[in-house]
């Protein structure tokens, strides 16, 4: 038996199904790269899995040793600084591209039925990614990590009714300590990856089931073929995007390698404390509101984002043709940007 025949017999693949699977028609506008941002977070997640598993080779999730193990990765292990920097930068690009992707879907109203449930999975993906960032940041166990854990679990704890249970569950007790680090570690390297992979699976399945929303642009009318196939055309676009992003990731990691601050000190909050940039708006909000409003604000925001397809439908029914949803989106975006800029320059 020839090699080819043997493979066909022992590892049968349905050729026709494969061709059908890869010939998914893609609307023409996805040739423009800014319509194809949804893939970027996924590539970044792949980078996270690979670099994350490498970091686990040296990282020790022990409150007495965690910081030293990161110091070892950063200063002693060969190329440890690079792996760590890629992991950090990739997490930032992952979240930034998710935000851009969500904005694209929002302002093209691509969340409308039948894609409403898929939008909700998108919001879940975003939340999982932010929690990924928060738990990963905490693992370093430097000053900023410790106080981010303190404030983060404090926010959870101030939620009405269920808050105390959630905060105790996150901390593994009523204080931050070894239990907290262990739990964050397990969230970061076991539970969140499983949840994220499942959610991405459903998200991509639903995209394939619905097809990408077709959008009409000026000048498109006379183009005959409105779609192009996934393979090879779209794969090619994506490959070009991946190459550009990978180069960007490397350049950022080499030029701006991630630093290591002072080790966690449970008695002294640093005078200048700031979270990661994607928490800036929330951080500023907490400064100008009382505790309950401060904590409930972001949760209500997430709730609105989650149920947005239905809220928007409701507005369309009550005020037909008024584009209320669009203007709420613009207002929301301006507010978040305003708060973020305020946090960057204010103190």
């Amino acid at each position: 038996m020839g090699l080819g025949a043997w493979l066909k017999q022992s590892f049968p693949v349905d050729q026709d199904a494969l061709i059908e699977l890869t010939a998914e028609p893609i609307p023409n506008h996805l040739k423009r790269w800014w319509w194809a941002l949804g893939g970027t977070p996924l590539y970044m997640f792949t980078v996270q899995v690979i670099t994350g598993i490498m970091l686990v080779f040296y990282y020790v999730p022990d409150t007495d040793k965690a910081y030293d193990s990161i110091a070892y990765i950063t200063y002693t292990a060969d190329y440890g600084w690079l792996i760590r920097s890629i992991h950090r930068w990739s997490s930032n690009i992952m979240i930034a591209s998710l935000i851009l992707h969500m904005m694209r879907v929002f302002f093209t109203k691509s969340y409308k039925a039948p894609r409403d449930i898929n939008w909700m999975f998108g919001v879940v993906l975003f939340l999982l990614s932010v929690i990924f960032g928060f738990t990963g940041y905490s693992l370093v166990y430097e000053q900023m990590s410790y106080w981010a854990m303190q404030v983060g679990t404090g926010i959870a704890g101030a939620t009405p009714f269920v808050g105390e249970w959630i905060a105790d569950f996150m901390r593994g007790g009523s204080e931050i300590g070894q239990n907290t680090l262990t739990r964050f570690y397990i969230f970061h390297i076991v539970l969140l990856p499983i949840l994220l992979v499942m959610a991405v699976g459903i998200h991509v399945y639903l995209i394939r089931a619905h097809g990408v929303t077709e959008l009409k642009f000026k000048g498109d009318e006379d183009v005959e073929k409105k779609t192009f196939p996934l393979w090879p055309d779209h794969v090619f676009t994506e490959l070009i995007m991946v190459s550009i992003i990978m180069v960007l990731l490397l350049v950022l990691s080499i030029l701006f390698p991630v630093q290591l601050g002072d080790p966690a000190n449970p008695n002294v909050t640093p005078l200048h404390i700031k979270p990661e940039w994607y928490f800036f708006a929330v951080f500023r909000w907490l400064k100008i509101t009382n505790l309950l409003v401060g904590v409930m604000g972001p949760m209500v925001f997430i709730g609105i984002l989650f149920f947005w397809p239905f809220i928007d439908k409701f507005f369309d029914k009550v005020f037909p043709g008024k584009e209320v949803g669009f203007w709420i989106g613009v207002l929301g975006l301006l507010t978040i940007n305003g708060f973020t800029v305020w946090e960057i320059f204010g103190h």
Partner: peptide
């Protein structure tokens, strides 16, 4: 008493 940082 807000979110648990230490005061100066």
């Amino acid at each position: 008493t807000h979110l648990g940082c230490t005061v100066y």
